[in-house]
């Protein structure tokens, strides 16, 4: 077992964890942040995406011990109670949520896109979510949701009543 210090969703933790565990195991099994989804365990599907020190990563492809002293944001860190953030609002409004299993990773991929550029082109959005698989939507509504979220961010769209 090893000891880790990690900040997750603005809370500091000190955790004892098995050497063989990955970041996703730490987040799900230890911290019970089950919004982090495991779909393929090899970086193909992106369902386990989190933001690590400001960068979008697959939490299934990082060993837990590597993230000592790091800062992680998971889907649980984007909202407080029912007070959801602008990307989450856009996903609901655009109908970009179906089975929901890709949704947390997809929303964090959207955050990574919009944190860089509040006005991304459709091509940039497609590139930005190219590490996230969705088997339900055909991606169209997800791209629309990210465009809508960009609109909320740059002020060209306002929240629905």
């Amino acid at each position: 077992m090893i000891n880790l210090k990690i900040n997750v969703n603005n809370t500091d933790y000190e955790i004892e964890i098995d050497e063989e565990k990955r970041l996703i195991d730490l987040l799900r099994d230890e911290l019970r942040l089950t919004g982090v989804k495991e779909g393929c365990s090899e970086g193909e599907c992106g369902a386990c995406s989190v933001i690590l020190d400001g960068k979008l990563v697959n939490s299934c492809l990082i060993m837990a011990f590597q993230v000592n002293d790091s800062k992680v944001v998971t889907i649980e860190g984007l909202s407080e109670g029912d007070n959801i953030n602008y990307i989450q609002k856009a996903f609901i409004e655009a109908g970009a949520v179906q089975c929901g299993y890709c949704t947390p990773g997809m929303i964090l991929a959207a955050k990574a896109i919009l944190d860089k550029n509040p006005n991304p082109s459709r091509e940039e959005i497609r590139m930005g979510i190219s590490g996230n698989l969705c088997r339900c939507t055909g991606y169209e509504k997800i791209v629309e949701a990210i465009e809508l979220a960009g609109g909320y961010l740059n002020g060209t769209k306002t929240y629905r009543e």
Binding site: G43, G46, K55, V57, N58, L61, I62, A112, S130, G131
Partner: peptide, 9 residues
């Protein structure tokens, strides 16, 4: 290479 996530790591 890979995807945004892979290129970040």
């Amino acid at each position: 290479i890979g995807s945004p996530q892979i290129r970040n790591r």
